[in-house]
């Protein structure tokens, strides 16, 4: 198997963290992985994206020209990356903020769900949950363990909230 995943949105939406959790889950699953961030003049409110490759084989370039999975958290990112998605690629959009999504995409009102759960910052975990269900690259148990580890050292409720958001996304609209 090989998935080339682009996670994109605006700075502050937890784009890098979501990508990081995918790569760390790949590591826990014994797969090859690379994580490559956008870097430089990034800031809260600017654009942010990262490329994560998960594969059974050694990985050459960590840079993705056409992703097999696109996860977008805001409108600008959809406009930028949608034309690059592979044929029959999986597109998951945060429909709370993205309005011009294609019909073939999976729409998750992630920001809305996160607010309901008590913290808008958990929207990335809702999206991540849906991505794990949609691609089935790892079990949700593996990802849950990684999330726990990522928030180790913070107050317990932080990991709990993020896992709750992740599972909510994982169970959301399971039609595809």
């Amino acid at each position: 198997m090989r998935e080339e995943i682009i996670v994109a949105g605006s700075g502050g939406q937890g784009i890098m963290l979501a990508g990081n959790i995918i790569a760390r889950s790949a590591l826990s699953s014994g797969k090859y992985t690379t994580f490559y961030p956008s870097y430089g003049a990034e800031m809260r409110g600017g654009t942010a994206n990262c490329s994560v490759i998960v594969s059974d084989k050694e990985i050459g370039s960590p840079v993705i020209s056409s992703p097999s999975v696109l996860l977008v958290m805001n409108e600008q990112s959809l406009i930028k990356y949608l034309p690059r998605v592979k044929k029959n690629g999986l597109v998951i959009v945060n429909s709370s903020l993205v309005k011009s999504y294609p019909d073939a995409s999976i729409q998750v009102p992630a920001t809305g769900i996160a607010i309901e759960l008590g913290d808008v910052r958990a929207a990335n975990m809702v999206m991540l949950g849906r991505l794990i269900f949609g691609t089935n690259i790892f079990s949700k148990e593996i990802v849950t363990e990684v999330i726990k580890d990522v928030f180790k050292g913070k107050q317990e409720f932080v990991a709990e909230l993020n896992i709750k958001a992740f599972l909510k996304g994982n169970n959301y609209d399971k039609k595809s």
Partner: peptide
């Protein structure tokens, strides 16, 4: 180079 410097892998 910037790619090897910025990328993460196990």
């Amino acid at each position: 180079d910037g790619i090897i410097g910025q990328m993460m892998e196990p």
